[in-house]
Structure formats: structure tokens, C-alpha cells
């Protein structure tokens, strides 16, 4: 078949690390604690550099300053508002991107004509540096919420599409053949064979896509944002409040980690059929 090969970063089996055997908890806990030594050490070093005056506040505020800035921003409600606005942008963009990616990926994966018509343009668009589309998006959508949501949707949908498509195409033909002999309807074949077969790869795409979605949000919010974490950070920059800038960055990072944890939990539940050995 002349379908172009896909560049999919992770094979599906790397998506969910095998759960560790339950009988060696003690040996596992110790190294996990040990891993915290150098991060905490660096934090202490940072604090030391700040309080000794080596690191000045207009370059980078100290950890304690950052912490108190976070408390202040939370108390005034600014942080909560910015957080809610940014989260909403990501959720909207991800939802929109998911619909697009799933519809296109399933169409291309299931039908020959779908693959012929859908895949080539998507593969071509994929090579565009999509963050470079920001100026066009501003011309098209103005400077409100739309360009930010659109950028997130676009960034999210490419990895998801590629992995959904690859997952469906990789469905074991022997299982499809068995389904045919066993009298599955088309619908049963889709729901019980093709989509579950594509699920591990789809979840890999979901994770990659969410990473790109956060990045898209950060870039999108740098431009003319009137609210959200990007706005908070830009404002802080104008007043040289490095403590507030760092607060914004930490919240971005925490959000990224939180979504990753959610996907991991979904993975564990959805792929439990292969984690039971």
C-alpha cells in the first residue's frame, strides 16, 4: 500500500510502564526519596544566592519571595481568575482538537478513500511550524479568545490524529479476520476490535497532544491577552516582578503535570487488560 509512513514518537507499549510488583515496596521507596536530594539542594542554593545578594531580585526573586507572591496573588483572587481563564482555553481547545482529530483519524483509518483524501493534506500541514501561524490567526480571529483556543486545538490535534490513524491501521488483521468469521456486525467490529486496538496508540497521542496544547497556550497568551496566566506574567514583567513571573510559570508546570497524571490514570484504567500479568 502506498500510504506514507508515519512518524509516531512512542510505540504504544511505552505509554504505560508496567506496574511494579507489589512485594518490593521498601526497596522502591528509598531511591524515590533519594531522588529529591539534588532538587531540594538546588532550591536551597537558590535561596542562599538570593539572601546573600549574589542573585538580585530584579533578575530572579528568591524562593520565599515567590512563595509569598503566590500567597498574595491567591488571596486577591488574581491567580484563581487567571488560572480559570487559562484552563478554560485549554479545555475548549483540546475538546475542539479532539473532535477534529478523532473524526479525521477514524475516517482516514477506516476507509481507503478517507486515507487517500484526508491523510496527504494533514501530513503536509503537519510540517508547518504551527506556532508561526499566530499572526494569521490574529488576522482571522482577532485578539480575543478565539485565536488562543484555535492555536491550542491545532497544536493538540496533530499528534492525536497521527496516533489515532496509526493505531487503527495497525489493527491486527488476524483479529479482523476472526471477527468476520464470527459474524460481528460492522458496528461490533468497530467498537470491539478496531477502536480498542487503536486505544493504546491513541493515548500516546493524547499525551503528546496535551504537551503541545500547553505550549500553544503559553505562546498564544503572550499575544494581547487580557486575562489568564499569560496576562498575569506579562503584567508582572512590566513591573519587573520576577516573583510573580515565576509563580505563573510554576502554575503552568503544575497544570501540565496534572493533565499528565489524569492521562496516566485514564491509561491505567483503559489498558488494564494488559497490566494484569
Amino acid at each position: 500500500m502506498s500510504i506514507p509512513t508515519l512518524a509516531v514518537a512512542d510505540p504504544p507499549h511505552t505509554a504505560a510502564p508496567p506496574t511494579a510488583p507489589a512485594r518490593t515496596p521498601r526497596r522502591r521507596r528509598l531511591p524515590n526519596l533519594l531522588r529529591w536530594i539534588s532538587p531540594v539542594g538546588l532550591l536551597l542554593l537558590w535561596q542562599l544566592a538570593s539572601s546573600s545578594g549574589v542573585l538580585t531580585e530584579d533578575k530572579l526573586a528568591s524562593p520565599t519571595k515567590v512563595l509569598s507572591a503566590a500567597v498574595d496573588l491567591a488571596a486577591t483572587g488574581e491567580l484563581g481568575d487567571a488560572f480559570a481563564v487559562s484552563l478554560r482555553r485549554v479545555l475548549l481547545g483540546v475538546a475542539l482538537g479532539a473532535v477534529i482529530a478523532l473524526v479525521l483519524g477514524i475516517t482516514a483509518g477506516l476507509s481507503r478513500w478517507g486515507a487517500v483524501l484526508v491523510d496527504p493534506p494533514v501530513q503536509m500541514l503537519r510540517t508547518l511550524p504551527f506556532l508561526g501561524l499566530v499572526p494569521l490567526f490574529i488576522i482571522w480571529f482577532g485578539i480575543g479568545e478565539e485565536p488562543k483556543v484555535a492555536l491550542v486545538a491545532l497544536g493538540f490535534s496533530f499528534p492525536l490524529y497521527l496516533n489515532v490513524y496509526a493505531g487503527i491501521r495497525d489493527t491486527d488483521p488476524q483479529l479482523l479476520e476472526a471477527a468476520g468469521v464470527l459474524g460481528y456486525t460492522r458496528w461490533e467490529r468497530l467498537v470491539h476490535v478496531v477502536l480498542p486496538a487503536a486505544l493504546p496508540q491513541t493515548l500516546v497521542g493524547l499525551r503528546q497532544g496535551l504537551g503541545v496544547a500547553w505550549l500553544s497556550l503559553i505562546v498564544g497568551e503572550q499575544v494581547n491577552a487580557q486575562a489568564g496566566l499569560g496576562y498575569l506574567i506579562n503584567n508582572a514583567r512590566d513591573f519587573l516582578r520576577t516573583d510573580q513571573v515565576v509563580v505563573g510559570l510554576v502554575v503552568y508546570a503544575a497544570l501540565g503535570l496534572a493533565t499528565d497524571a489524569v492521562v496516566r490514570a485514564v491509561e491505567r484504567r483503559a489498558l488494564r487488560w494488559r497490566n494484569t500479568l
Binding site: 488476524q174 483479529l175 461490533e188 486496538a197
Partner: peptide, 24 residues
């Protein structure tokens, strides 16, 4: 009906579902 050399069970469906799927 066919039983193949490899059992070709759906790994993501429980055993009883593998048996009953496709029956209407």
C-alpha cells in the same frame, strides 16, 4: 465457525465477552 491455530481472542475483552460477542 473457525478455531484458528492462534486463539485470536480480543485481549481487551473479558473471556466471556470473547465467547459471546457476535451472537445476536
Amino acid at each position: 465457525s473457525v478455531a484458528f491455530q492462534q486463539p485470536r481472542l480480543l485481549p481487551w475483552r473479558r473471556v466471556w465477552r470473547n465467547v459471546s460477542l457476535g451472537l445476536h
